[in-house]
Nucleic acid binder design. Sequence first.
DNA 1: TTGGCGTTTAACAAAAATGTTAAACACAAT
DNA 2: ATTGTGTTTAACATTTTTGTTAAACGCCAA
Lengths: 194, 194
Amino acid sequence: MAQRDTGTEQLIKDTAKQIFFSEGKFHATTQDIADAAGVNRTLVNYYFRSRDILFEQVAEEARAEMSAQLESVFSAKLEFKEKVHRLITVFMDQAIKFPYREIYVVTESKRTEKAVPDEKKNRIRKFLAEVEEEMELGRIKKMDPRHFLMNLFSLMAYPLITTCINKSLYNINDKEYLKLMKERKQLIFEMIYQ
Amino acid sequence: MAQRDTGTEQLIKDTAKQIFFSEGKFHATTQDIADAAGVNRTLVNYYFRSRDILFEQVAEEARAEMSAQLESVFSAKLEFKEKVHRLITVFMDQAIKFPYREIYVVTESKRTEKAVPDEKKNRIRKFLAEVEEEMELGRIKKMDPRHFLMNLFSLMAYPLITTCINKSLYNINDKEYLKLMKERKQLIFEMIYQ
DNA sequence: TTGGCGTTTAACAAAAATGTTAAACACAAT
DNA sequence: ATTGTGTTTAACATTTTTGTTAAACGCCAA
């Protein structure tokens, strides 16, 4: 079979991701996405049958990407401290690229009533145990380890969601904001690890 | 004139706020809002002329509410430490009620190209100066005061945006999650103020 | 009670977004 | 060159969402 694969299917998905995850335009229509991709809107239906299927597929791939990214860090054979360091690097780099990805997944999961699979729960549970161990060893401040995780992800994710407000509020341009966000990697690590 | 005022206009706005800010259903249509409010959809047009005007008005009021709330704390005649404490109380209580309010404002401001007014910028600048002073006095860790603010708001806001994920991830119900969020008030204060 | 006025409703119209179809296109293999 | 197959396009159809209008309703005051 001559699977020609002009890359259009991937282009549409990538464009949708760009619009949703990077630009945060959650109201985008299939026409908006097709225009941004420079293709005929009908191709959305040709490749994905329906708008909802495209959107859900985009959400599903986002879940998989985020999951793989965390898995790669959590399962690494590293000291806990080093794991946290790598987590911050990996997560922040992604968050800089796709600040709205998690929000998209949250709101999309809400619509489709998607629950977190046991596999991910177990992975987190394992990491929480590691956090607790580190607390026992007196290396990080004692607290409910769930708070520890929430703190960590909050510090990484939120400033990128609110980029446009902050840029306006502090009168800084994209380049300066990017610098600020890169600074945060070290700052968050110190804050968590003191 | 007999201004009858049946409260319907307010009801529609409150319902829209509930749906957008509390439930995070950003895709809601005017029909969805009318249904939730238990009124005829035409009333949306009667009172607000168009969907866009309602949505923008809701966003504008959200901006005003958030602004007033911060203003009340920032302008209070209090020690810096006490200000931070009150800020956390006030902001967290609001964030528990309306976790998605800021996100709504961010995405809506993006569509309407709304910039932060000078008044708010100045207010923040003043508070940043107070932060710096407190750092000089050695009461909080020295850092770019903008990071200090971003840290503070991140820790307060993000866990509430991701409520549905966290509840599923940690297998906890609404009541337990609320308890966890209330715990955060103290925890964040300690984290910021060490 | 009745006329006026703000409110509500239903029926209709218009616009926007999505989905379908058949034909045109383009490339590779025969 | 021709055939087959995957891709793209345009025209059309359908559905969804939004906006408009006129009539009905209900309360209050004259």
